[in-house]
Design a protein around this nucleic acid. Structure first.
Lengths: 189, 189, 189, 189
DNA sequence: CCTTAATCGAGACGGTACGTCCTGTCTTGTT
DNA sequence: AACAAGACAGGACGTACCGTCTCGATTAAGG
């Protein structure tokens, strides 16, 4: 029933190989074959762990982004939003940006995978923003009733930029976006 | 010097085949090989016209979406925005949605293509919104100085939805989004 | 130093699985993996007993064909030969035929194995025929001096048939072959 | 309808690669993958021509053995048989021997292929011997009525040797076998 | 009218990746 | 030790596309 346990070194080698392939060559350059070759691992070992390229990327992202979303709590909505947006955008400028792009590419090709990503990854990120909003609402700083819309206003432009203009994700943009969200939030809706 | 002219029937067959493949099987199911096979055309004939899958999709989209963005001009910002958003979202619910998803998938795998899409297609759409905003500004209905941000607030959530939750693009969502944009726009920024 | 003794039930399960796989699917369908799976035994247990597929087959054949070659002794060369040939051919029409074919396939792919088979299995069969010939010679019924050639005349056509026309191994063929061998044997050579 | 014609150089490269692989490493060392790699040809190019390893070998053998079976006609049965047997055995001592072994290995694993080989290759060889026998019969040198049996006596021992003792195929063996066949042939049967 | 040149379909070409299967070895915990 | 379980590197399987190429057969426009 037990069998030989999986070698954690193999896990690491696979993730490391996938990560370096994505950063070096982008999503195009990633293949199950290539990951196996680069990591010095058999294809079987990869397929045993992940049914598809997307799952590899998802896992790499999960491990890589252990630097948790901060969910700052300064007592001020603007401060909180700004901190989260700057942190998030900063991340997207580097390797995680490439990972998220790869993720999106995979999701666009496989609705089931998109659903999975939505539930496991996207939801967590949304929750972080929603928490900030909830606290602001409790302090009476928020009039707009639809948190979902406000969250969309945060992440929508981010993904838009990842798709067509990754360079746009600057601190200044984070500030402008934070102000915009607050402008909407302080209205009654 | 002239040689045999290109057969327009071949052009049509290619576009038609690409379109039906995308709608039937999604981006996954589309290949240059498949397009040629489905259209009864030689691979060479396809490659002569388009250097890559992405270009085919781009062209199909251009032809298919001859139903131009309206750029309504009712004299009222909210009316204009609402009309445009509803029309745009309505389009994304059907076949053009699949085409846009395919486009995004391709763009994510090829930065050069992303750039091209950005310049040729995205820019036009942004321009339509910017026109509405400009007119509103001339009427004194707009305080916010950064049109680009406002445009991002319009298209960001749309692409976000296309990536992870296509069902979200309803008329109600269009209305909420229009209100949000106006809320931001009427602030000084 | 002794450790746990080998489980005879495992031995049986392996042989049984190998046998049924060969008869059901032929040599093609036989693999160490498949034998282990079919017998519900670990691969290690198989490899512990047999270094290769060929050895399994060889062992299965040995156990299965405990119905020893008869080496009849009727006092008449023709009677003896006919009895042996009919018995042998009869065997080759059923399961042992498939086993012998598998054996040959393995031998052709591995000269060392061929040598081993030759020494252990082929030699025994040849000895049986040689015994018949020796007795005939002592009775003065045999003029030809080269027993090896005569034995080849018996088994050559049998293997030939196993390779390319298994259906040929009938009783009539056995009779014709026995007569041929006698025709050669009664000549001086 | 026409399409680009197959490149004969590719044909040659494949056959050459297959031949050298067989002679160097035996049937074990032959794989479609290996043939493609060795010949510098794509796997597709190989599969386009041959559905299986066996077909490659069969074709290589056919091309290689353009040194047709002689079918000598000296007016004397013994002379004819001896010439053919010596020529045949001589061939089996070298590269064609390895090819025939590979062929047999494949045939043993695939009854349909065995049938094909039987019809296309084996039949031709048998015909050569039968021709010799027919001429002898017309000259009154042959009493035995069953040519098929006589042919089996020629080829049976040859394949037997190829399977288990390739070294046995000497000129002396050819002579002994020729005499044996004649001994049978001059009897009434 | 008759070259000239680009098109057409067909399909071969070297490559790369797919996802599966088998080989023979190994590493667990259990008996 | 042997056992079931199952991971491991390696390698072959047969298929699908990639983008390029070479055919023979059209289809105009220009000499």
């Amino acid at each position: 029933m037990t069998g030989r346990p999986r070698d954690p070194a193999v896990d690491d080698a696979i993730r490391q190989a996938a990560l370096s392939l994505i950063t070096e060559q982008g999503y195009r350059g990633v293949s199950m074959e290539g990951i196996a070759a680069r990591s010095g691992v058999s294809k079987q070992a990869v397929y045993r762990r992940y049914p598809s390229k997307g799952e590899v990327i998802l896992d790499v992202l999960a491990v890589y982004a252990r630097t948790r979303l901060p969910t700052p709590d300064t007592g001020d909505l603007r401060e909180d939003l700004l901190a989260l947006l700057e942190a998030t955008f900063a991340g997207q400028r580097g390797v995680p940006g490439a990972l998220n792009q790869a993720l999106a590419a995979e999701a666009l090709q496989d609705p089931a995978f998109a659903e999975r990503v939505s539930r496991e990854l996207i939801a967590a990120r949304r929750q972080a923003v929603r928490q900030i909003l909830t606290r602001a609402r409790e302090r009476g700083q928020l009039a707009h009733p639809d948190d979902d819309l406000l969250v969309d206003l945060v992440f929508g432009p981010m993904w838009y930029a990842l798709l067509f203009a990754p360079g746009r994700l600057t601190d200044a943009y984070a500030a402008a976006l934070a102000d915009a969200v607050i402008a909407v939030g302080t209205h009654a809706g």
